[in-house]
């Protein structure tokens, strides 16, 4: 982690009609930091994330992602970030290699880079013998590892992960986090949401969003000390139990 700020938001707000989904959230994330974004269902996580990746215009407030403004530099933002979600990550009816080449192309790599990075990636994941198989034949955990590798194939400044490990078996879940650590140590900032509270502990800092407002923002250890609890789950329950909203 370095001192360089790669995400900075100031009073970021999104209203839908008379409903305020995200209310004046302000935070900074440093380069190489693993930043956990937690909240109850309906707390506003997805809305906030959509604004940060440049696909939803805020109602008010400011944010800079990798130095680019979220109002009028969204194309530059998209080139400098990676994104993966739990629900959609890969094309099931394409082979592993076809997915790799497609994503590398979408992220704007040159033909030479595509050739080189895809072969590196396949080797690193040990998928040499399966490169021609359809993605649908891979177990979920492998799909998610592949999807993560693709989300960072263009070496982005920041990668956004939306519940990347939901439903994944416990061993693969941990292998996935090793990949996150590795990416972070290579200077990629990781912005991640999860419902597994043990995973919150792997983050450098976490925020807990309740009804669109940041209720807590600190390192896991500092939060446990502040709320005098033994686990992040207890902190979460303490802060989120009073939530009015539910999606």
């Amino acid at each position: 982690m370095t001192n360089e700020t790669v995400i900075k938001t100031e009073d970021l707000t999104k209203r839908f009609g008379d409903f305020t989904a995200v209310k004046k959230i302000s935070f900074e994330v440093k380069r190489g930091e693993i930043f956990g974004f937690l909240g109850a269902n309906g707390a506003g996580k997805t809305t906030a994330m959509k604004m940060l990746i440049g696909i939803l215009k805020p109602t008010s407030g400011n944010a800079k992602i990798a130095g680019f403004d979220i109002y009028n530099q969204t194309e530059q933002i998209k080139k400098n970030i990676g994104y993966m979600s739990q629900k959609f990550s890969l094309y099931e009816d394409l082979t592993i290699m076809e997915n790799v080449q497609l994503f590398a192309g979408i992220y704007g790599l040159s033909d030479d880079e595509i050739k080189q990075r895809s072969s590196e990636l396949i080797h690193k994941l040990n998928l040499q013998n399966q490169a021609d198989k359809l993605v649908e034949s891979l177990p979920l955990g492998w799909k998610q590892k592949l999807a993560f590798s693709l989300a960072i194939i263009h070496n982005p400044r920041i990668v956004f992960l939306d519940e990347p490990t939901s439903g994944v078996d416990p061993i693969t879940r941990r292998q996935f986090w090793n990949m996150i650590y590795e990416a972070a140590s290579n200077g990629i900032t990781v912005f991640v949401t999860t419902h597994y509270m043990d995973e919150a502990e792997y983050c450098n800092r976490i925020t807990i969003l309740v009804d669109g407002v940041i209720k807590a923002l600190d390192s896991p250890a500092a939060l446990k000390e502040k709320y005098n609890t033994s686990s992040i789950e207890d902190v979460f329950v303490l802060l989120a139990r009073g939530a009015k909203r539910n999606d």
Binding site: A43, Q86, R241
Partner: peptide, 13 residues
């Protein structure tokens, strides 16, 4: 069948 998947810890409880 997986009634609590993707559900936050408070609602799961």
């Amino acid at each position: 069948d997986e009634p609590t998947t993707g559900v936050d810890p408070v609602s799961r409880k």
